[in-house]
Nucleic acid binder design. Structure first.
Lengths: 104, 104
DNA sequence: CCGTATCCTCCTTGATACTG
DNA sequence: CAGTATCAAGGAGGATACGG
């Protein structure tokens, strides 16, 4: 019989880094607007708080999905981009977005 | 289980139905073993409890991703399959699984 | 503008026991 | 075998205030 191994699979790995309520959406928003800034990103991401947005961005940056470009100016100016790894995930998200629009 | 606003984009819609800790994985396991039974599915899904598995299966069935085939026998015999809609989501999960294996 | 620091709530998940 | 019924815990996420 088609016994499935219990060891972690690609799906588990993806979920462990992108799971939670916000990260998919944040990646998607940055993709739609590369170089987006913090406050704009917050406005675009259905009701996320600045605390959660900052926490997620920090983790996404550490995990190599997001690039944080700080202009070290006053007042602060920070832009967010997808890294190469982040961009490589986008084609999956595009498929997912299309699927969601058409099937749900 | 997970309330991301369903209004804005396909990603949000997908997340609102498949968000949370387990559903992606459950769909993936059923895909790997169509007709799988409850206890086997629990064993295959890294440490999920029967309570959570049952809850997720119920929601996935209601949302049209999973088909529950009950043989009404004693002892009980229930098999789980993906619906047409569930199967239509698999190509995205395959891409995601491959991506996870190669990039994480 | 872009965060940080606290504190707190509630919801998901888990543990345990039980049943047709 | 395939669930239900409870109750508890933990942590993700939220509210609010403050700072460089």
């Amino acid at each position: 019989m088609n016994q499935v191994s219990q060891t972690s699979c690609g799906i588990s790995k993806v979920m462990s880094q992108l799971g939670g309520k916000w990260k998919f959406l944040i990646i998607w928003r940055i993709h739609q607007n590369e170089g987006i800034r913090f406050n704009q990103l917050q406005r675009d991401t259905n009701g996320i708080t600045n605390v959660m947005l900052n926490r997620c961005l920090k983790e996404l940056t550490q995990d190599g999905f997001v690039l944080r470009k700080d202009f070290h100016s006053v007042p602060p100016h920070v832009e967010y981009y997808l890294t190469k790894q982040g961009k490589s995930f986008i084609k999956i998200m595009e498929a997912m977005n299309d699927w969601g629009e058409n099937n749900l």
